[in-house]
Design a protein around this nucleic acid. Structure first.
Lengths: 334, 334
DNA sequence: TTTATTTACGTAAACGTTTACGAATAAAGG
DNA sequence: CCTTTATTCGTAAACGTTTACGTAAATAAA
């Protein structure tokens, strides 16, 4: 029977395609009676307008892109959940891209978006950064919002958390719990996010007159396998009595390392981590966490993006910081 | 300076748009020399072909849709991770839709896909089912693959796990551990997935000559808040010494309920659950799980979808079952 | 040499919408 | 009565590609 398009729909109704188009878009130029006829016939024939023709003509895609390092991550999956909900409410579609922390992949995605495939971008940049100039290019062409992660040297709208404060407070919490030798598991070091967390940790140490030795900081530890032994070595050699982990993925190995080293959490070693683990309460021992408002970040970022679409947002260079929530549990009990 | 399109690119090169288009697509009709010139200029001008014009003309979108109940879920986020990777390798784009278990939302997404916005669909259907006829409509129009969840009365390509066997084996495991009164936390009851799990549980009980009372089955428990008290009431009233949970979301409340009821896992109550919790090992006590190969399911589903695109897949009605992995931990120790 | 074939490119139509412009009718104003 | 304005719809161009078809030149076959 062939596909049903607006011309066929129009001819069924003895109308022009223009009139049908306008009726479907509820234009004031069309009489109520005609609109009703069009709607009815459209429903009857299961007419679905071709989005590509529409996007081509109108120069807008009704689609946004979400670029994240990984989907399978407690934080990002929650943020995506929120973003999809906001988009759906606006009848927008959501394209998902994973960079796997690669700057090259990120660059390839971003430049492909220059084609106009999307009306806007929500991005949490990869930690392995390549060139960065594509950020500029994309944001010149369409609204773009950074969420959670960002680069200090790139302007734009950014939704982050209070990374400095929460790292500072978490470290202070360890100090208050009696820790004297506090290790830091670093990550995202190329990003503002990671830098601020590290700075919060270091400043907290200084303000408590605790030494801030470089060998208390474990870096370059974001791949999986070597990570565990690196952390285990760190614990057995430096013998920290407290650890703050800048990402969840580095805190989990601590549990295993402590088991293997027969160290008790929190007696021998107290542990707190940035995390969106939903069951931290049920771990053995319950894990103290710096909980980022992942859903709220996604929600806020998407909401602002849509405001930018409708020109109800004017500040092209602002950072909005949402508060993280430190939840003290058994793993940092003094 | 205006947007750079194929016509401008062509005029820069003193070529026709047709030649440029063919060169960019590496057509044999174009000389190597011309191709090189075109490529160079395209790169120089940062030319990105308009995907809508291309999709409109070629009648294909280079995009697939993934419809899931939730993104923020250990299972689905892993599956999506795999799907995105497969899609990226094929230069395809991935649209994400969340149904929140609503059949109406699902129906609305599916019918909107009839517009041709995507070349194929990967779907894990909502548990609250509405009409179902849209499954037929969509699969008539484009390749579609069910993953994890499916409806028995709908034909199609389905990638599932061995729900019956794994539920049976998990129940048997509880029996072997000495359980006599084994409760079942039901979910997904409208789906084949849920029915098979329940059947596996029931058959295992029968084959072990254990009574299979209806009041050992907790149903309609997929919303969050009422769920906890329902499970707590169930445990305190029916006093099961073993529980198998058909989804992770129902197992977690058991931990809290047992705490509140001062019951010890596994001494008073043994617990095993379908789950993709990555840190089940670290829970208190470590949780026995029926681990579904989420990544592999996503990978397999996406791979088959692409085979369907290229007509290298012929069976329109087949169910491929991947094996789940039962991991016995402290929570079911006898 | 003539004819057939291949190579390399151009012309123009097509994909299915949307919208600027125009026109016809009806209503209102003078 | 004529003129203006509002209402409602149609015509045709435009969005940026792709591709069927045609063609000129070069090469091969005869």
């Amino acid at each position: 029977m062939g596909e049903i398009n607006i011309k066929r729909l129009a001819s069924e109704l003895n109308l022009s395609a223009a009139t049908v188009s306008r009726a479907l878009r509820d234009s004031h130029e069309i009489s109520a009676e005609t609109k009703a006829r069009v709607m009815e016939m459209a429903k009857k024939l299961n007419y679905e307008p071709n989005p590509f023709a529409s996007s081509l003509r109108r120069q807008q895609s009704k689609t946004i892109a979400v670029i994240v390092p990984e989907v399978a991550n407690n934080f990002f999956s929650l943020a995506i959940k929120a973003i999809e909900e906001v988009a759906r409410a606006k009848d927008y579609h959501v394209l998902i891209y994973q960079t796997h922390e690669s700057g090259e992949i990120e660059a390839s995605f971003m430049t492909s978006l220059l084609s106009g495939r999307v009306d806007g971008v929500l991005i949490s940049p990869a930690s392995h950064v390549a060139n960065k100039e594509y950020f500029q290019k994309v944001s010149e062409k369409m609204p773009m919002v950074f969420f959670d992660r960002d680069h200090a040297d790139i302007e734009g709208v950014k939704i982050t958390t209070d990374d400095y404060d929460s790292a500072y407070n978490a470290t202070q919490h360890l100090v208050d719990a009696g820790c004297k030798t506090i290790g830091y598991l670093a990550a995202l070091e190329t990003l503002t996010t990671g830098k601020k967390r590290l700075q919060g940790y270091q400043d907290a140490l200084k303000n408590n007159n605790l030494k801030c030795q470089p060998d208390l900081i474990v870096s370059n530890c974001e791949n999986n396998e070597p990570c565990h032994s690196k952390i285990k070595d760190f614990i057995s050699q430096q013998k920290p009595d407290g650890i703050i982990s800048s990402i969840e993925e580095l805190a989990i190995p601590c549990y295993y390392a402590c088991k293997e080293l027969h160290l008790n959490i929190p007696k021998d070693l107290k542990l707190i981590t940035f995390s969106n683990l939903s069951h931290a309460e049920l771990l053995n021992p319950p894990l103290s966490t710096i909980n980022q408002p992942a859903f709220e970040i996604g929600n806020e970022a998407a909401t602002i993006l849509f405001k930018m679409f409708s020109k109800r947002w004017y500040d092209p260079n602002i950072t909005i910081s949402l508060k993280s929530n430190i939840i003290k549990r058994e793993s940092t009990r003094s």
